[in-house]
Design a protein around this nucleic acid. Structure first.
Lengths: 258, 258
DNA sequence: TAGTGGTCTAGACCACTTA
DNA sequence: AAGTGGTCTAGACCACTAG
């Protein structure tokens, strides 16, 4: 272990760096966790110790420690101290953006398969706050990349002639646009669900897969300002193209050795 | 709209509440977003305006605004202001804990099916930083609830006689323990992946499903302090029992009306 | 130039834990 | 009683944006 990264060392921060002091402190400590200078269960230096060690004010050191706590690397116990956490699968956080970013090069083609107005089925009325038979907007889209199908999207919208929602929806031709505004444009709240499903024959044909084969289903429900569910839809995604990934614990710290 | 929730009102905070001032401010603003007092694209009051409006210091109001930004409800633009964001699917964050919490009532039974030492296959050596043929710990577990299978877990560990890892692993009999320490006990870093897969006949038999039927696969790789991949495993989860859910946008605000 | 958010200071008081 | 983290103050300087 390099002496400069020892846990007791007074590693000072670079006041002229573009990186804020609180971030330098958070990074320094997380690197010490990554390299084993601090291990799971160890108590980190108290905030006052870190203040003198880094030569900053309490608020700055506190902000750094909060970052470690938010990342799940440490837990703070009032009156006791701040302790390094051990890894726990349950702490994992998956961000949809990391999955969709792979396709943000604009090469995705959005093909509108159907746009119609139809009465709500019992199932639709159950999910959306409406009566069976009420007029609904029904949309079906296929998303492709180099002519190869990636996702099949279906969506139901409560029909509201006052809202120019449908026209905006029909103009969507990019994945970015679809993810930004699928159903939820202008709504304050939504719920998402990810699960594994078996493809219906219709979806399987469109995705060029076998009926019943596994796919990732991203379901979304949006609510209006009065709390009413007004949009319901789901993406069926080819499982070879869509995975959620997440890192837990300390960020990569150039491998400890170096 | 009630006048007390209007956007220009000087809604004061309760100094004697158990809820900190910064949280009251964040909640107040997010409720105003939920009910439509502020809409997507609107500029929120400046920090100095919020300071005078709520009667708190700049740091307190800043902390509240930061919470809104972290939740994805607003974006802060230096020199311009803070603006309400529109919903975007890409901002969704899924927490594994919310899926596993359903089973934290202790009614899960962990059954160790196999614990052996075997040479690494080419595939294992490819994922873990080891040579084909190197001695590996191989574990297979079945997790049940009321005798009904929920998850099938397989795991490979680089064998290290200095590490009492295996013994600790064998003692795991609860889901909590497994999720806390599956492979990663004492390691600083791990990677997780969630995807949809089709079940092998072996896994399907154990999970009481049909071969090839869809399942949610949670894969995990853990790294030691030198950055070496030393643990690889995955949970195959019954799709009817395991979903990832997430809320985006403003939290539920008692339905706008009231 | 005025206003905005981003960072930081040097304290303060409180609740909590441990001894 | 001493030490810890949790909250909050009342400012400060900076970088950035706009008119």
């Amino acid at each position: 272990m390099k002496s400069t990264s020892g846990k007791g060392s007074t590693k000072s921060i670079d006041r002229h760096s573009f990186e804020p002091a609180y971030m330098q402190i958070a990074r320094t400590i997380s690197e010490q966790i990554a390299t084993g200078a601090y291990r799971a269960g160890d108590r980190l230096p108290s905030e006052s110790e870190l203040c003198t060690g880094f030569g900053v004010s309490p608020m700055t050191v506190r902000r750094a420690v909060n970052i470690l706590v938010e990342r799940g690397l440490a837990t703070a116990a009032q009156g006791k101290g701040t302790y390094v956490r051990s890894l726990a699968l349950g702490e994992a956080v998956f961000r949809l953006r990391e999955m969709t970013d792979r396709w943000y090069d604009g090469s995705i083609d959005v093909r509108l398969l159907e746009a119609s107005i139809a009465p709500a089925t019992a199932r639709v009325a159950e999910v959306l706050d409406c009566k069976p038979g009420e007029r609904m907007v029904y949309l079906r889209r296929l998303l492709l990349r180099d002519e190869a199908p990636l996702m099949y999207h279906r969506e139901y919208l409560v029909y509201d002639p006052r809202r120019p929602l449908v026209e905006a929806q029909l103009r969507i031709t990019s994945l970015e646009g679809l993810l930004e505004s699928a159903g939820g444009e202008g709504f304050p709240r939504g719920n998402l669900t990810v699960q594994a499903v078996g493809l219906s024959s219709e979806a399987a044909d469109l995705l060029d897969l076998a009926t019943g084969s596994p796919a990732l289903c991203l379901e979304h429900v949006f609510y209006d300002f009065s709390g009413r569910a007004v949009s319901w839809g789901w993406f069926l995604c080819r499982p070879d193209q869509f995975k959620l990934t997440s890192w837990i614990g300390a960020p990569e710290a150039s491998g400890g050795g170096r």
